[in-house]
Design a protein around this nucleic acid. Structure first.
Length: 744
DNA sequence: CGCATGACGATTTTT
DNA sequence: TCGTCATGCG
């Protein structure tokens, strides 16, 4: 096993005793080290599997470790404690919840519900949510938990912050909820209150391994400190240059002052990179070496130099996305590169938009990574709320969510009276509604429909253990009229929502209890589905961390975009932006194409921009620089010239025409991408689209279709996998077949 | 209740 | 610019 490791990797594996920091640069094989280290410990009988704790930040990382270790040691892998910080901490919290006054069947509240709850509280306190947003309160509450700082010691101008915090915590507990920040905090409280419990875990975990140590917050740090203090065999793997989550409480000082925190510790650097060409590494180094807060290390590689990194400058954002689309076509057509080996990495989510548009026009398959999870959809959250009330009558938030969905004549006035009573009497909302029946304080429609609703919940609460989860969900949703609500709407969107609910109901079959299901969706569900495998990936740099691609495009390198304008206002945050840049560069294996636009629409205004300071940190002699803009009259790039056919691409006819009409000399009026509307919570997913398409192989001219972005339209022309569609709201566009569904 | 209207604000989001 | 949210009217 050790044969496959280089010298420093071997060192990192064999140094099992005492605190060890492994500074692992991007692409230096840190996962391999973590895995080999565990195998090494086991095969030398230094510990039993259940005496090893390995924590990661993502489920993906945890899963990968489990899988790869499982391949070597078989079923024994299940005895290891491998998981995310939160998954491990929850396991501990469920076992000892009574020490902190929680029931062991607590559920984890999601961000949406956190916000709803805080809004309610702010309302009760008569705080104007326009002036002081619930999100502002929530972020203070979360950060205080993450960095272990008392909420009234945070500087903030939010009125009654402490009171809101206390009420929030009280309400969480009464609904049997914990939030993400609570999980590890409660662990600390358990360890503090019960020395025996702490001792038990300290004695249990002989070896502790931590992945992505640079991303730990103070809370996680304390947790590790406590757990490791008996054997002190803690191995932290991380890269200070890749610390990009400080805004979520991650403390880069944890990795910077490791030697001070852990006595007799060692540091091993992994600097041999197995991912990128040396030209790419050179650029990465030239940028990151401008940072002062770092341990310092220099990546090197045995690989050849590769092609030079390219820096492109564009007239504006449109030229940028059009040109990149063209370059992608060239890569895939001429060099037989697969779409899936190409990624566009952006600073902020909204930047993906212009690329979507040019990819649609150029028939480039793409997939946006990130965004909404399946279980975050409106209809799915509603459906889950019904289940939540059914298992937990105290779940006020869930009940509030669906009490008048579908409309059953329970208006705001009734809800607010009942809700206020429940607050005053410190009783659950459910209970207060029940009491109101006895007191006869409600009348008319609201009384009748609430009675029916409560009866449904009580009836199915009895049946929870007697019928399967899918049956339970199906019957509740149908008896409560929820399914009928969407059926009545009878639009394509509503049908798609019903499809999603069906899929949801089916997926419940994989779980043995609602609690297990709720934990799965709050903790484990990953955004990745495997649809559209062969597609260009569009994502933020944050979500690209840990991934790699042959070809990486890095657009939008302008002051204000990257580094972001917000980061420029705050002191010290430019270094984090630079680390982000470093992460972005080191995702590339073979080709890196950095670009910036001289002008860009920002919040509707056409603005002149300066190239990012990170561009100036790259030695110009090491890159190929190309200016693609109007001054160059580079029409081939501008108008998607198809070299094979010798013609402009059909999809861009409208582009040219629009610009002709729009006075060519006025650069500011490139309005080819006419107004697009996109409904939020749109139920039509790529997944569903693909599914529906299987039943609709052909689109005859004249078919009415639905497109996620452009809405409804009629097909005017078909050209291979491209459809020319006259959209009802947005005019005629050429789009790819895969992106529309028949509305028949 | 459902729709229209206007103000407002707008990074990153592993769990 | 564009999406969200609160508010007010019929």
């Amino acid at each position: 096993m050790l044969e496959n490791l280089n010298n420093s990797q071997t060192e990192a594996v064999k140094n099992t005793e005492g605190p060890l920091l492994v500074l692992a640069g991007a692409g230096t094989g840190k996962t391999k080290v973590l895995i080999s280290r565990i195998i090494y410990i086991l095969s030398n009988y230094l510990a039993q599997p259940q005496e090893i704790l390995a924590v990661t930040f993502t489920n993906k990382a945890a899963q990968e470790m489990k899988n790869r270790i499982g391949e070597i040691i078989g079923d024994q892998v299940n005895n290891l404690w491998v998981g995310t910080f939160h998954a491990i901490a929850i396991k501990i919290l469920r076992r000892h919840s009574e020490i902190v006054g929680l029931r062991s069947d607590f559920t984890i509240i999601d961000e949406d519900d956190q916000n709803r709850l805080i809004k309610q509280i702010l309302n009760d306190f008569n705080i104007d949510t326009k002036q002081f947003s619930s999100k502002a309160y929530l972020s203070k509450i979360s950060i205080s938990k993450d960095i272990l700082k008392n909420i009234d010691h945070l500087n903030s101008n939010l009125p009654k912050l402490k009171e809101v915090y206390d009420t929030y915590q009280f309400r969480l507990k009464s609904m049997n909820f914990v939030d993400f920040g609570d999980i590890i905090n409660y662990n600390l409280e358990i360890f503090k209150k019960s020395v025996e419990t702490l001792n038990y875990y300290q004695n249990k975990f002989r070896y502790i391994l931590v992945d992505e140590y640079q991303d730990t917050n103070n809370c996680q740090y304390q947790w590790l400190l406590l757990l490791s203090s008996k054997f002190c065999n803690i191995c932290c793997v991380g890269d200070d240059d890749q610390s990009i989550y400080s805004w979520r409480g991650a403390n880069i000082n944890n990795i910077l002052r490791f030697e001070n925190d852990f006595a007799d510790s060692k540091i091993i650097r992994l600097e041999q990179n197995y991912r990128s060409t040396s030209n790419i590494l050179k650029i990465a180094d030239s940028v990151i070496s401008n940072n002062k807060q770092r341990h310092g290390k220099k990546l090197w590689t045995d690989y050849n130099k590769g092609s030079k990194v390219k820096i492109l400058s564009f007239y504006d954002g449109k030229v940028e996305s059009q040109t990149i689309a063209n370059k992608i076509k060239n890569f895939t057509q001429n060099n037989s590169i697969n779409f899936s080996q190409i990624a566009i990495l952006v600073r902020a989510g909204y930047q993906t938009r212009s690329f979507e548009e040019s990819f649609i026009q150029n028939s480039i398959p793409y997939k946006i990574i990130g965004g909404m999870k399946f279980y975050e959809r409106l209809e799915i959250k509603d459906a889950i709320a019904y289940l939540r009330v059914c298992v937990n009558f105290d779940d006020d938030l869930a009940l509030l969510r669906i009490i008048n969905t579908p409309k059953r004549g329970v208006g705001d006035a009734v809800i607010s009276t009942l809700y206020q009573r429940s607050q005053q009497e410190k009783q659950s909302f459910f209970k207060v509604i029940k009491n109101s029946f006895e007191e006869n304080s409600l009348k008319g429609k609201s009384k009748e429909s609430l009675k029916t609703l409560i009866e449904i919940f009580e009836k199915f609460n009895q049946k929870i253990d007697k019928i399967t989860l899918p049956e339970l969900a199906k019957s509740i949703l149908s008896e409560a009229g929820y399914l009928q609500m969407w059926k009545n709407e009878n639009t394509l969107e509503a049908n798609s929502r019903l499809d999603n609910i069906d899929e949801f109901i089916k997926s419940l079959g994989d779980f043995s209890s609602i609690a297990e299901f709720l934990e799965y969706i709050s903790l484990i569900e990953v955004r990745d589905d495997n649809s559209r495998l062969n597609s260009v990936k569009l994502m933020t740099i944050h979500s690209a961390k840990g991934l790699e691609f042959d070809i990486v495009f890095l657009p939008g390198l302008e002051e204000g975009t990257f580094p972001s304008s917000k980061s420029l206002e705050e002191a010290n945050s430019v270094e984090e932006e630079r680390r982000l840049m470093y992460v972005a560069i080191t995702r590339a294996k073979k080709e890196l194409i950095i670009s910036f636009a001289k002008n860009r629409y920002i919040f509707g205004e056409f603005q002149n921009l300066n190239p990012s300071r990170f561009i100036s940190e790259i030695p110009i002699s090491e890159v190929d620089f190309e200016e693609i803009d109007f001054a160059n009259n580079n029409l081939l790039n501008r108008f998607d010239f198809n070299q094979n056919s010798g013609k402009f691409n059909v999809s861009n006819k409208s582009y040219i025409k629009n610009n002709m009409n729009n006075n060519f000399s006025k650069f500011g009026s490139f309005n080819y991408g006419s107004k697009t509307t996109q409904t939020k919570n749109s139920a039509t997913t790529q997944k569903n689209i693909t599914k529906l398409n299987l039943a609709n192989e052909e689109f005859p001219i004249g078919t009415r279709v639905f497109h996620q972005k452009f809405g409804y339209g009629k097909i005017k022309n078909v050209d291979g996998n491209k459809l020319e569609i006259s959209f009802e709201k947005t005019g005629t566009k050429t789009v790819m077949k895969d992106f529309v569904t028949s509305s028949q």
